[in-house]
Amino acid sequence: MSALSLTAKDFASDQDVRWCPGCGDYAILNQMRKVCAKLEARRENTVFVSGIGCSSRFPYYMDTYGFHSIHGRAPAVATGVKIANPDLDVWMVTGDGDGLSIGGNHLMHVLRRNVNLKILLFNNRIYGLTKGQYSPTSEEGKKTNSSPMGSIDLPLSPVSVALSSEASFVARCIDIDKNLGEVLERAAAHKGSAFVEIYQDCNIFNHKAFEYATDRAVKEEHIIRLEHGKPLIFGKDRDKGIRLHDHKPEVVQLRSGIKEDDLLFHDEHDESLAFLLSRMSHPDFPEPMGVFYSIGDDCYEDLLTKQIQDAEAARGKADLNALFNSGDTYTIEA
């Protein structure tokens, strides 16, 4: 069968999708299937690996190879898959609890190693599967079953975490936003760990957490779409921008004596800028969407393969008898 003939539907498994009606996961799933079809992915060569949580049911719904592993450990399982077979296209699906709480350690290390994986972190700022406790991305003061008087934890920014973990590709998008497909395509094309935070609506336990960024009437005032080499402009009328003042970003009104050239220009290769952007959050700033950072770097499994090739070249491809007879040997005569 030619890969060209595959459509989004061909990437749907025979399993009934069991997320709650209205869950943001549906939109992401549909987009993912479309992207696979568009990129002419081979089903047999594609592997989805996940941890535990609502988002981690994702692999069951893709007609590819899939591994629904244990809580927080998907980066490690996916790393093992890539080490064992670097030719596979491996996608990892995680959530804010799975990826940043119980599995925070693994996320940090998979990113710094630059294993060639595409990591999708569905951030709904809540624990959905366990029925609504505050998560590492829940806002301070969040009232949930486990924080009736309000959460006293400071939330993490997933993008800041990824950047600090030396990720080579970091992006953010929204489940129902038009740019999701583009960002997934960019992630797929990246060689190395690609980290994508996706704002995802938990219809049941944290509905409208991202309303400011999704409501048609106001969203363009609250997000800023990143484009490499372009000035940071936002607003429905594209009349606002971000300027650097005293090493800090500030929102400025355009056309009131401020020109585009006065604004910050996005540069995907600039780590400091990416971090600065990752610190901009609602309601003080529009939240950046798109690719924050992207650089080319060697990926882990290629370096490992190269070491093996180098060792084989330098020491000769060894056979077992050579191994057994290495070290000090001696012969006992009959």
Partner: peptide, 20 residues
């Protein structure tokens, strides 16, 4: 593969087994 912890080590080994 020198993993970041014991759990990652076993999980990576499981991933390798899955991959054949």
């Amino acid at each position: 593969f020198q993993a970041e912890d014991e759990i990652a080590a076993v999980c990576a080994a499981i991933g390798a087994g899955f991959a054949g």
